[in-house]
Design a protein around this nucleic acid. Structure first.
Lengths: 109, 109
DNA sequence: AATGTCGATATCGATAGGCTATACAAGAAA
DNA sequence: TTTCTTGTATAGCCTATCGATATCGACATT
């Protein structure tokens, strides 16, 4: 990611899980989609992306297999596992909880 | 902070600046207020708090002077500077921007 | 005086996640 | 063959936070 990591860290996993919930995708595809839907606010660089994918796979939240992109290029396709869906739900809940708390600080009194 | 740092990092500065916007306070008081208004979601530990206060003071966003707490105990009182107010406004804007982008990822499609 | 303890401030080492830079493989294009 | 592009991968660094620990002053107890 670019600078916004100064403001929001640890949300990369959540964004990746959520993106792969929509459909299986290859690594670069995940990063592209995140950049598009956030209008460039989040730009996930390869050096952040692949370590994160491996981390998530290591925890059993993703599965991968070699396949190809829509353009027919060789690529590794990542799929959200059942455990990954549960993790996604948990992280979503936690994100909302944390954001609500943050808003209490910003708007309170 | 306790575990939620896994979800939201880099927002400690913002929370401190915002808390000191309300009124000058001593370090422990800042941490206490954050814990209260977030119902314990954010618990800022001393090992995070004081380095952050020094960091913010070093950047000219806070000023400090020795005084005492409401209970009459010796303490260092922190005050938001003019530059600190500008920084707070900027970080607030950025937080909302980042949160909005995050929501696009979570809710989109 | 000596000791204890409480509130508050402070720092150190470890950890973790993200970033930059770089590298490598494979197919397309020249 | 060489070059370019796409996609994957990793090594090294940086920085914020945490847990643990230390210090300091005021006050109480002995």
């Amino acid at each position: 990611m670019n600078k916004p990591s100064e403001v929001l860290q640890g949300t990369l996993d959540l964004m990746i899980l959520r993106t792969l919930e929509l459909r299986p995708m290859h690594g670069v595809g995940v990063a592209e989609r995140i950049r598009q839907v956030t209008n460039g606010v989040f730009v996930v660089k390869a050096g952040s992306l692949f370590p994160a994918l491996h981390r998530l796979e290591g925890k059993g939240w993703l599965e991968s297999q070699w396949g190809q992109t829509e353009e027919g290029r060789r690529a590794k396709l990542y799929t959200l596992t059942r455990a990954g869906k549960a993790q996604l739900a948990a992280e979503k809940r936690n994100f909302r909880r944390v954001f609500h708390a943050m808003n209490q600080v910003l708007e309170g009194e």
